[in-house]
Design a protein around this nucleic acid. Structure first.
Lengths: 176, 176
DNA sequence: ATGAGGAATGTAACGTTATACAATCACATG
DNA sequence: CATGTGATTGTATAACGTTACATTCCTCAT
């Protein structure tokens, strides 16, 4: 969310993550939305799961499972890998978080509630990640897949590069 | 390559990997092309690098670094992880192989020589991988990136699903 | 209420993937 | 031949992820 109140940007291709926004409401809203969603679907939004989502929402970056695990330990939760991985699996399975394959790391979903095939932009300088929507089914890959009879079930679309903020701050590092 | 002799498919969206072809020439051609390419660019196509590419070319699947390492050991090369990773880094850096992020595994490039942003189709039943071309710059993600000033340097586009061969053999497993 | 069954959590050990850093080698130059 | 430079190799370790199993917590039918 770019802010607590709607700014008319939702539903467009405008990604979250590179823009300034009210972070407090951003976290609170995300948690509230998740809670509502879990109630509706009869899912158990347990303390660990809630905490992990909160940790993820506090960043617009992807966090490694072990970073999350460290924070869980600090908060008095279990400290073994499965604790973090199970919560993450739950969040990912129900569309509340995504895995960034390129980074082996996780990020809170920026568009919860929407049925989507997410696409990400990863800044290699500041590590921030923005989420947009991919429409692979309509792109070249979708065409190729249809042509040969490959049935797409899930897609990974991740772009690595330099975000607008970093491009401005460090123009000399902008070119590859 | 679908075969040693041109079948008029190169340059189209037709991916390699799900179709039958002459595998012997496919490996030999790949190695020859790599050799030529390295000579032209003054790169050292050392025995380990050559062997790793040969191993990859023998499959149209992605292989993990440690699988490759095992085969290297069998052939009398070093058996420590960096041996495999360094060769793979070289191949990837020079477009002779690609990493499939979703699988943490590697595959020989199906279109060496072409300057490309690869896209992959991964069959979850038989594990085969086909390479097509992505044109992210022209898709929704490219549009979103341009709109906010994100500069894309590299893309990861991977579709997971069921290949035509498996869909035919095991139709009951085709639906998610 | 209560106890059976399933879901979630905690803990330990293990397996896989990847990189950091030090040492060595090979070659071009003075 | 000595030496500087860059590529390559060796060794150790870090980071990521899974399996196995015991325990606790919910919930729901009795």
């Amino acid at each position: 969310m770019t802010s607590g109140s709607s700014k008319g940007l939702e539903g467009t291709a405008t990604p979250v993550g590179f823009a300034h926004h009210d972070h407090g409401t951003c976290v609170a809203d995300g948690l509230a939305a998740a809670e509502t969603r879990c109630e509706k679907k009869n899912l158990r939004f347990t303390p660990v799961r809630r905490k992990v989502l909160e940790i993820l929402l506090q960043e617009h970056r992807a966090l490694g499972a072990y970073t999350i695990l460290d924070r869980l330990r600090d908060e008095g939760f279990g400290s073994q890998p499965p604790v973090a991985y199970r919560a993450l699996d739950f969040l990912v399975a129900h569309g509340l978080a995504h895995k960034i394959e390129r980074l082996n790391a996780f990020i809170a979903c920026a568009h919860p509630g929407e049925n989507h095939a997410p696409a990400f932009m990863i800044c290699r300088l500041c590590d921030s990640v923005a989420e947009a929507h991919s429409v692979v089914a309509k792109g070249a890959l979708g065409t190729a897949a249809r042509a040969i009879g490959f049935r797409i079930e899930r897609t990974v679309v991740e772009a690595e590069g330099v975000c607008p903020n970093c491009a401005e701050k460090a123009p000399e590092k902008v070119s590859v």
